[in-house]
Write a protein that binds this DNA or RNA. Structure first.
Lengths: 193, 193
DNA sequence: AATAAAACTTGCCATATGACAAGAAAAACT
DNA sequence: AGTTTTTCTTGTCATATGGCAAGTTTTATT
């Protein structure tokens, strides 16, 4: 029996036929990233996106005061993409960096466009994925307003436990909009309960 | 000379041909909303979206403690849509309410799908619009972490001056993630400079 | 194994913003 | 025009979180 392609999981619950999936998957190229290497850097225009087969990745921006702010974490099965830069063809403000050695499946913009415009269910899938990212961002954004830091942390632990276990405290802290000092105290408080 | 359709402005800089634009525009239906009426309510699934010809609209959620949090403001030329609910066909958590009497142009999901799948440039346009919303949300989200309340307010004044002039302080405050009390003080401080 | 570099914790104090409540002003309604 | 309701302002005090710096622990490097 043949080994299933990793991307068959990713495209698991789309409406694409077996054949459509095969066509799409055949266009992806396996690439690897060493820990700390960049998938995308500020000022460049994203020309690829990836699905992660293994490893951890984060995106971040440098704010006006020079602070590093994590905007997202990515792990196995996730799509790694800078939506605005990839689709609007603009230089990005974000950096995307491997937090560990990673194995990914890569697609470039031109090939994406071919698939998007030729396969109806591929574009439905793409739209669903983008809207899913939008939704996650909105939830995070509302959480920043409605919830206390401790609750935001607990939510992250629940939603992405493997991220919390594998990523340094300072990156998690900036993602939650607090300092590493505060997060350390929050962890202490939770531990003592 | 014939009066141009309002939506010709909205679709101004797409790659759609005159004919394609005409087809798309012909599918929109003019609707009006009275002040305080709802375009969408929590628990329902969005089956339409709109472009605003005149008036002001806001979207908001009720958080776990019962607080009303404004998630966005919309004014002339803007698209008013709950992306996740409209595309994922899920009940929404958001409410969309007219802040003044409004004139809008409405499209339903089914008609949208027809246009999306039949007109290449319509879907390019739609994708661009969605990515634009994503980008705006991301900027707002980062601003919540990186900037002080006063700076967030000043940015809003710069980006949406007509909103600041026409919307009540408490709605602006929750959008900025602060209380109306704090915003009142921030305004006072700015005025005294 | 030794050393250097990160990552994490903890203490002390500062500060932005919140909570609540009372007035003042403005807007909506009859 | 008068009354009610909503919006906005201001005072006092509380609190979540930040800033900084000194340790400690863990991880990476030679």
């Amino acid at each position: 029996m043949t080994q299933e392609h990793f991307l068959n999981n990713v495209f698991g619950k789309t409406d694409m036929t077996k054949e459509e999936k095969a066509i799409a998957i055949s266009k992806f190229k396996q690439v690897t990233f060493e820990k700390n290497s960049f998938l995308l850097e500020e000022g460049k225009t994203a020309n690829h996106y990836w699905f992660i087969q293994s490893g951890f990745i984060r995106s971040y921006v440098i704010d006006t005061e020079g602070n590093d702010i994590t905007t997202n974490f990515y792990s196995v099965g996730d799509i790694v993409i800078d939506w605005p830069s990839f689709f609007l063809r603009n230089p990005t403000r974000e950096n995307i960096q491997a937090l560990s050695d990673c194995v990914c499946w890569q697609l470039d913009f031109e090939t994406f466009q071919e698939l998007f415009h030729s396969i109806r269910n591929f574009r439905e899938q793409g739209r669903t994925t983008l809207v899913g990212s939008y939704f996650a961002l909105k939830r995070h954004s509302i959480s920043m307003i409605a919830d206390q830091a401790k609750d935001r942390y607990l939510r992250l632990v629940k939603e992405k436990p493997h991220v919390v276990q594998n990523v340094s405290l300072k990156h998690i802290a900036t993602f939650l909009g607090i300092t590493d000092t505060s997060l350390s105290r929050i962890r202490k408080e939770i531990a003592s309960e």
